[in-house]
């Protein structure tokens, strides 16, 4: 019983931590890509964003790492909005069919 409680309490902190770490990896990916002008695949970036948003949502329901989950989810949503707006502006600036 005690062991189960201990395991549960440890597992409860994981989604929040996963969320903020994914968000940070997403941010780091964007920074490296933008500052080095590398054209890399967009899929890891989208994966990090999705991971941060979904684990952020899960993490919100656990008391243990709610702070990390809030930050991870916040950054994830920021990155989603950022991605959508960047695509919108990039298409409109010097539009080429």
């Amino acid at each position: 019983m005690e062991l189960a409680m201990k395991i549960k309490s440890k597992v409860a902190g994981i989604p929040g931590l996963v969320s903020i770490i994914s968000a940070l990896l997403g941010l780091a990916y964007f920074n490296v890509e933008y500052l080095t002008k590398m054209n890399t695949s967009i899929s890891p970036y989208v994966f990090f964003i999705m991971a941060s948003v979904f684990s952020g949502i899960v993490g919100l329901f656990s008391k243990k790492s709610r702070l990390y989950a809030i930050w991870g989810l916040g950054i994830g949503i920021f990155l989603v909005v950022h991605l959508i707006l960047m695509i919108f502006f990039s298409i409109n600036i010097n539009y080429k069919p």
Partner: peptide, 27 residues
């Protein structure tokens, strides 16, 4: 750990924020 992670997040958000503001300005 929390301090490090949040500071890192704030620092890493500088470039995307500036990029977004720039694209918003030109768009």
């Amino acid at each position: 750990t929390t301090n490090i992670l949040i500071s890192l997040a704030v620092l890493l958000m500088i470039v995307p924020t500036l990029t977004l503001l720039t694209y918003f300005y030109y768009g």
